[in-house]
Design a protein around this nucleic acid. Structure first.
Ligand code: FES
Ligand code: FES
Lengths: 144, 144
DNA sequence: TGTAAATACTACAAAAAGGTAGTAATATAT
DNA sequence: ATATATTACTACCTTTTTGTAGTATTTACA
């Protein structure tokens, strides 16, 4: 139901980066913008680089940029990367995973609910968020 | 996405108790049936009593029974009781909760997915699980 | 060439979640 | 009455998650 903090941070960071138009994001800058603990955020950023979401540049004026097309990064991928690829598919009663031939009593209720959620998270990419953000911006400007 | 272990245990226990027809369940019996760590399970059972789901009887031949009609207990209630009533409603980016006038960029995607899930969990009661279990039993007997 | 601004690595510390131990209290059966 | 089977309470231990510290490395710029 709840994501762990690290996953929330990852979504926050990538979501933020996807919707702005800087050409480089330093850990310090992201820390100031997002209020995520400095050192923890740094570690997370290097993790994201190792996982291929970001590309890092060391040294002065260094920082992070996306290493993939935003269309290629879904929310589900981010979550899976950090929580483990099938955290999302575990049985609600904690059986290692949902087994088709021996489902638990809650399986049916749970599957129906979950599959909707998984679909949405799989089908929403960072590019979608960017688009939405731009549209929201325009809408707000027109209201002024 | 994932429930914490304690919540899984709670669902397992209440789901089990709801679908069997014993008139009393001791911690020891539940431990044997469900493989949940003895002492932790005990503590959880007394918690459930305090929260009004179960009624406990001390002493020899004691144990636990439901203190409410199964129709009155939804999966969402169980989850809320243990994870905190709005764990299910938190912002996916970790903002304290989803604020209508200042939603985060992921709010729309997330709400859509989540509301389906919340609906299902709110509308499924232990009575529903019991009914399902009985039907499954009958179906299996006929297959023999 | 030296200083400053950045990431990288490793180890540790603190907090939260999960799990255990000991003992007291309660009720039943013999 | 006493032994036994049960829950209740409190404190502690272990593991996982979250957060911090120190130091090395890389690169730009003056
Ligand atoms: S087997 Fe439990 S939810 Fe699928
Ligand atoms: S404000 Fe973030 S999901 Fe609603």
């Amino acid at each position: 139901m709840t994501l762990n903090k690290t996953t929330e941070y990852a979504l926050t960071i990538l979501g933020f980066m996807a919707t702005r138009n800087e050409n480089m994001y330093s850990a310090e800058y992201l820390h100031n913008q997002l209020n995520i603990p400095r050192r923890y955020l740094r570690r997370l950023l290097t993790d994201m680089s190792k996982h291929g979401f970001l590309k890092s540049t060391s040294g002065r004026n260094g920082g992070f940029v996306f290493d993939r097309d935003l269309k290629e990064i879904s929310l589900a991928m981010i979550i899976n990367t950090i929580e483990g690829s099938d955290a999302i598919f575990t049985c609600i009663l904690g059986f290692s995973c949902c087994i088709v031939d021996k489902p638990c009593i809650m399986h049916d209720s749970w599957m129906e609910a979950r599959s909707k959620m998984v679909d949405t998270l799989s089908n929403t990419t960072l590019a979608d968020l960017k688009e939405k953000y731009q549209l929201d911006l325009i809408r707000n400007l027109k209201l002024l």
